[in-house]
Structures are given as structure tokens and as C-alpha cells.
């Protein structure tokens, strides 16, 4: 999982939102996802960049959609750590992700799994995001929430694998160039 070392690496505002939403989706997929993130950071040696869970929470709060957002952006090394973290967690959760997006799984079973995921995702979004933002209010629409959940699952599935970080970085940089 190699991302080209670029000291001028940056992501868009939409990328900050999407990165945090992907981590929220991981938490919705895995009930112990929050602890798994910290454990992964410890195992991968990312604590040199983000030393503890408080700092990790601060970095996640750079998402403008948060209830209490921080007006700062991520440094290049922090972006790389967060992206690698998402991709590593996607790799771990790939069997679950694949079941959610596969058309060979029986439809009733797939719908029940997706419904459970959507319920958890909506609850986490309600807890942590600013309800005054239009993007957050759209999560109350079941149609939009279902579509958003499917989009997040697809992104996580495509982020798995050795080339996942490069794809995810490119996706987070959408809209930076005019």
C-alpha cells in the first residue's frame, strides 16, 4: 500500500467530508470499529503521526459536517495515515463489503444486511454530524440514506487491495483542479 510521497498533498473539502464518512461507515459495519482503528494505527506504526485517540478524534473533526468541527485541514502525512487506515480496514472488512454489493447473494438477505447497515449509519450520523447542514439533513431521507450507504460501501470495496490507497487519494482530490 504505497502512496507517492508528495509534500504538497492535499484533499478537497469534499474529500475531508468523505474521509470521515468512510470511517463512520466502517464503524457502522463493525461494532468494534473505533477500537479497531486505534489498534490498526498502533500495529502499523501510525502513532508517530497521530499519537493518541484524542488527536485522532481531532483529525476526524476536520470534517466540516461535524457537530463541532475544527477549522483546520490535514497535513500530508496525516492524509496518508488516514487513507492507509481506511484501506486497511476495508481490506479487513472486504468479505462483508463484497456481500453487500454482490448480486449473487439472495436479494432478501442482501436487503436485510443493507438495512441494518443503513440504520447504524444513520444513527451515527445523527449523533456526530451537525443537523443544520443540508448534507446531514439529507440522511433523514430513507432514499438518499440508502443510496449514500451503497456509495460508501462501494468506495470501501474499491479501496481494498494494494492499489486502493492510490484510488482513494485520487477520489478525495476530486474537484481540486478547475
Amino acid at each position: 500500500m504505497a502512496i507517492p510521497d508528495n509534500p504538497r498533498l492535499r484533499i478537497s473539502r469534499h474529500g475531508l467530508e468523505r474521509l470521515d464518512l468512510l470511517l463512520v461507515a466502517v464503524e457502522a459495519l463493525d461494532l468494534n470499529g473505533g477500537e479497531a482503528m486505534l489498534w490498526t494505527m498502533q500495529q502499523k506504526g501510525y502513532l508517530a503521526v497521530i499519537p493518541n485517540r484524542v488527536e485522532f478524534w481531532k483529525k476526524r473533526s476536520c470534517n466540516p459536517l461535524r457537530r463541532y468541527p475544527r477549522r483546520e485541514t490535514l497535513r500530508p502525512e496525516e492524509i496518508i495515515v488516514m487513507v492507509n487506515l481506511v484501506c486497511h480496514l476495508s481490506e479487513r472488512l472486504y468479505p462483508i463489503l463484497r456481500q453487500l454489493i454482490s448480486s449473487t447473494v439472495p436479494e432478501a438477505l442482501s436487503a436485510a444486511r443493507m438495512e441494518r447497515f443503513v440504520t447504524r449509519l444513520r444513527r451515527l450520523v445523527r449523533e456526530r454530524m451537525n443537523p443544520k447542514r443540508a448534507a446531514v439533513q439529507q440522511f433523514e431521507d430513507p432514499h438518499h440514506c440508502q443510496a449514500m450507504a451503497r456509495t460508501l460501501v462501494r468506495i470501501l470495496a474499491f479501496s481494498a487491495g494494494p492499489g486502493g490507497p492510490r484510488r482513494l487519494i485520487a477520489h478525495l482530490q476530486d474537484g481540486l483542479q478547475p
Binding site: 463489503l97 454482490s102 474499491f158 492499489g163
Partner: peptide
């Protein structure tokens, strides 16, 4: 192909390239 098969194919090609 569905999304799962595309993800599988991309992971296989990724593994070869990397």
C-alpha cells in the same frame, strides 16, 4: 459484471502490478 466482481478483478490486477 456486478460491483463485487469488478472489485475482485481490480484486486487481482492490483496484486499482480504491486
Amino acid at each position: 459484471l456486478d460491483d463485487a466482481e469488478l472489485a475482485d478483478l481490480a484486486r487481482c490486477l492490483d496484486a499482480i502490478v504491486h
